[in-house]
Write a protein that binds this DNA or RNA. Structure first.
Lengths: 160, 160
DNA sequence: ATGGTTGCAAAACGTTTGCAACGCC
DNA sequence: GGCGTTGCAAACGTTTTGCAACCAT
């Protein structure tokens, strides 16, 4: 199972900031503004998402544990919820099983998943505008494009 | 949580057939042709899907048990897999939890799900053609539209 | 008869919860 | 110091599995 991206999935993430109001200091400030606390676990988990690109809670836990072995699974679940509430990460369902989290630092995108080879491709939300526009005008339905996962078969697997 | 449909979600299902090659006799024949056996459980479970419209495995089990109390959960899971393999039912993920199965007897459709009120609307696959056409031409990706679930906010909930 | 199918029970899986200790602000 | 947060362990709901009995063909 491979994984590719069309969208610049740069792991620029939320770190490596300059002074003042970079995205780096931003999220820490917003976190506190909402009454949350800034803990090492939260920084580590957000960092893991940034580095991993797409990751299940379990994968996040494994990654974080390589740095701090004591971190617990329930903390990962609770933290991912907080980070999603802050708009720092999002999740999509790339398999019938566990959800997959990804950073929102890059461009907003949705996913194509090939059922045959398992490849996951990130696509800019603009590509879906024809559908989302139509659903809004015809049904008054406002689509959460960033959560969208489109299943099907990729070019390589269709050719074969 | 309500549930509405745009597509004629008639519970015509696979039953009530005429002689010869109706969809009724068809699936039983195809089932056997593939080496499967026709069991009471399989007929009951397919019937339950037809009657319920959209249903989780658990809901299917509950419905079937009202008719035959001895039916087991694992049989439901195994049977839904068989029925999906035969193309008689499909599943989509309408919640972050259990999958939802529905009959394919009616028109092929995908789903809109409102995160606020939970309403589920069935939409004809043609509505998504603008997106699926573009993904095919731009990415060579063939979309399984029938599995698609689009999350967002419905008209009523947006207005409020 | 014979091999696919079932029910049962147990395990697997991902996630959530209650709670006391902990540590950020 | 207060309260949000953590780790732990146990519970949870859903799905899967091994297996002997069963029954459709």
């Amino acid at each position: 199972m491979s994984s590719v991206s069309d969208v610049p999935e740069e792991p620029v993430g939320h770190g490596h900031g300059h002074p003042e109001t970079t995205p780096d200091t931003d999220w820490r400030a917003e976190l506190r503004a909402k009454g949350y606390r800034l803990t090492p676990q939260r920084e580590l988990i957000l960092g893991a998402i940034d580095e991993l690109g797409h990751a299940t809670p379990e994968e996040v836990l494994a990654h974080v544990k390589t740095q701090v072995s004591s971190v617990n699974a329930s903390t990962v679940y609770r933290t991912l919820e907080v980070l999603e509430d802050l708009g720092l990460v999002r999740h999509a369902h790339l398999s019938d099983r566990a959800p997959t989290y990804h950073s929102v630092a890059g461009h907003e995108h949705f996913h194509l998943k090939c059922r045959t080879c398992g490849e996951v491709v990130s696509v800019d939300v603009e590509v879906a505008s024809a559908l989302t526009d139509r659903l809004r005008s015809d049904h008054g339905f406002v689509v959460d494009t960033g959560h969208l996962t489109v299943f099907g078969q990729c070019q390589a697997c269709t050719a074969t």
